[in-house]
């Protein structure tokens, strides 16, 4: 597209939102286009006027005092872990290795206390279930890497694989067709697995160097929570680094997804393995 026809190109250039080839093309165009040069200068001048009024508002002294008081009270209360955070961390560790020296009576009391806490802290239970789903996804992925879970259907066609799952899993599951004409990854196949006594889907992908697996279960069985949360559009993604693997979980339309790979990047950047040639690739780059 001629950059002149893209009215937003000047603004994106001004906002440092153009990158790579787009930036280069626009710079070259700008050198020879007086219309865009004028547009750019107008927008720049306008931006300067707006910027000169920064900050637009200053918090009133009374509000500063109140906020300072809130922060002071918090400091006075201590910055230890919240009860549910503490519970979660404790419960995720092997109990015997934490307190091997406790006598039997104290064990019983501890178990009672933990049970009561679980009753009154449903969020903890939810997060434990979510952690369990992540662990299962990692375990399944490891089995796939070690050749203990071979695909039951081998196909690179999302349509065929989706059709194979029909009637096998207790949910309607359709793999999207790749919109990328030159995908970095390819669909290898899929198989059934079991999660909490219900059938779930394991879909296998490959890049040139990596194997990627996608575990899909009903949200009736699997919980999605925790990790490093990043919202993108209507979806909330949860990023985990577990053992040597990167795990991304999300839920959509009643299905819980866990994507596991072992790329040597942050969990968020691992999305770039598949998205690097897609228009949304910048979503997954870590800003400096």
């Amino acid at each position: 597209m001629n950059p002149c026809d893209d009215a937003a190109a000047v603004l994106r250039y001004l906002d440092n939102e153009l990158g790579g080839q787009e930036l280069e093309t626009f710079r070259q165009h700008l050198e020879s286009c007086p219309i865009c040069q004028v547009r750019l200068e107008e927008e720049r001048a306008f931006s300067i006027v707006v910027s000169r009024s920064r900050p637009l508002y200053r918090a009133p002294e009374e509000l500063r005092r109140q906020v300072s008081e809130i922060l002071k009270q918090r400091r006075a209360a201590g910055s230890g872990l919240g009860i549910d955070e503490w519970l979660l961390r404790v419960l995720q560790r092997p109990v015997l290795s934490r307190w091997p020296h406790l006598p039997l009576g104290l064990w019983a009391l501890t178990l009672l206390a933990v049970s009561l806490c679980l009753i009154f802290a449903p969020d903890v239970v939810r997060r434990m279930h979510a952690a369990s789903y992540v662990e299962t996804a990692v375990g399944t992925h490891r089995s796939y890497l070690e050749g203990r879970l071979a695909p039951e259907i081998q196909s690179d066609s999302p349509t065929l694989v989706s059709a194979w799952f029909a009637g096998k899993v207790p949910f309607d599951f359709r793999l999207p067709a790749s919109r990328d004409s030159n995908p970095v990854y390819r669909l290898v196949g899929a198989r059934m697995v079991s999660y909490k006594g219900r059938n779930a889907a394991l879909v296998m992908y490959e890049t040139q160097r990596e194997k990627i697996s996608l575990l899909v279960a009903s949200t009736r069985a699997a919980e999605i929570a925790g990790g490093d949360e990043v919202r993108s559009g209507n979806l909330l993604f949860h990023y985990f680094s577990q053992e040597e693997f990167k795990v991304i979980t999300w839920s959509n339309h009643g299905l819980a997804y866990a994507l596991v790979s072992s790329v040597s990047a942050s969990a968020r950047e691992s999305c770039l393995v598949c998205h690097q040639n897609m228009p949304d690739r910048d979503l997954y780059r870590t800003r400096p």
Partner: peptide, 24 residues
């Protein structure tokens, strides 16, 4: 971030008292 939050609260509410409550 208090000034930024207050500015954002001001454009959302257009009311200094409501903006201060929102920031708190």
């Amino acid at each position: 971030y208090i000034d930024g939050l207050f500015g954002y609260a001001m454009v959302l509410t257009r009311n200094p008292a409501a903006a201060a409550d929102l920031v708190q």
